[in-house]
């Protein structure tokens, strides 16, 4: 039995979510390979080879894979899937884009966003925005899985020494073309990798006021997030969104500022270790999941917090 993990990367470095997926793969199987598909991405393969527990790294480099177009990557993964009993990817926008296409090519019912592994065919996954947990058993011979990264620890990224094998499996469907990407540049940690997150909601009132959170974020080394309400109101870009349809996070400390706590937001952060809520509405549902609640006007509380931590 062998498992294949689809590496998440940007052709330069391996993204940390790959490490959580590796941990899930190692729970299923002793023999785990990582597929690095991209262009001019041998540095990523070298990084992947250092991940503890990995037996082999498969490296495929081509223009066709540079921008991770689903049509091309899915065909690649499907074509090499014969040797694998498990194929896993992180529940990232990339994993979500590619894996169902692989599953349909293989006539397999995908198991999305697993949060626990009970056995080699039985998994837990959140449904209804995390309001229920379904335990599902797959009767397909091959398991195609996306992994909720917050539910699995990151594998050790330094102690492995896997063999790197270069594949010449190039597929270019030629039906889609990458035009451009606008990736927000930030010195702060990524939301899905941060130990501390400070998020603002509708209570922030406008985008400029998010600067109130920046000073605290700088002091705590925190990432800045937002509720859907704040994103929909145009306060901050969409990649800030934490929630059912945004990013799922579970930092050591999550500070929710001016966020009421809609189900869809809670679905994205309620597995955080410690939750702090600051809101002037004492009836806000966010207080029901918060370890520490402060009923206060955020425009007074936040500057005070910044000056005292």
């Amino acid at each position: 039995m062998t498992a294949l993990v689809l590496a998440e990367h940007n052709n330069q470095e391996l993204k940390p979510v790959t490490l959580n997926t590796v941990t899930a793969a190692l729970e299923l199987d002793q023999d785990v390979h990582i597929l690095v598909a991209g262009n001019a991405c041998s540095a990523v393969a070298e990084e992947a080879a250092k991940v503890a527990g990995i037996a082999k790294v498969l490296l495929v480099e081509s223009d066709a894979y540079e921008n991770f177009l689903a049509e091309n990557i899915a065909t690649l993964v499907s074509n090499i899937s014969g040797d694998y009993d498990f194929i896993l990817a992180p529940t990232s926008t990339n994993g979500k884009n590619v894996m169902p296409r692989v599953a349909a090519l293989q006539d397999v019912s995908q198991i999305s966003d697993i949060s626990a592994i009970e056995s080699s065919d039985t998994f837990q996954r959140p449904i209804y925005a995390g309001n229920c947990i379904a335990t599902v058993k797959s009767n397909d011979s091959k398991k195609i899985i996306t992994v909720r990264n917050t539910a699995f620890d990151a594998a050790d990224a330094a102690s492995g020494s896997a063999e790197i094998i270069t594949l010449e499996e190039i597929n270019d469907a030629g039906i889609s073309k990458f035009v451009k990407e606008e990736i927000a540049e930030s010195d702060r940690p990524e939301l899905t990798a941060a130990d501390v997150i400070i998020s603002g909601g509708r209570g922030m009132q406008n985008g400029d006021n998010f600067s109130i959170l920046e000073g605290i974020a700088d002091k705590l080394g925190a990432a800045i997030g937002a509720s859907r309400a704040a994103v929909d109101s145009g306060f901050v870009p969409n990649d800030y969104q934490v929630g059912q349809t945004g990013k799922i996070v579970a930092p050591d400390l999550y500070i929710a500022v001016g966020i009421s706590g809609a189900i869809q937001h809670l679905a994205g952060m309620k597995d955080s270790k410690v939750i702090v809520a600051i809101n002037k509405d004492e009836d806000a549902p966010i207080f029901q999941v918060a370890d520490y609640g402060l009923v206060a006007d955020l425009f007074e509380a936040m500057p005070e917090l910044e000056s005292k931590i």
Partner: peptide, 26 residues
Amino acid sequence: RLEIIKVTLPAEREAGVIVETVDELI
């Protein structure tokens, strides 16, 4: 292809505390 073995509630978070001041929070 998938059998639902069971559907359960997620683990509940224990209710927290309301702090009165920023100092107490820190």
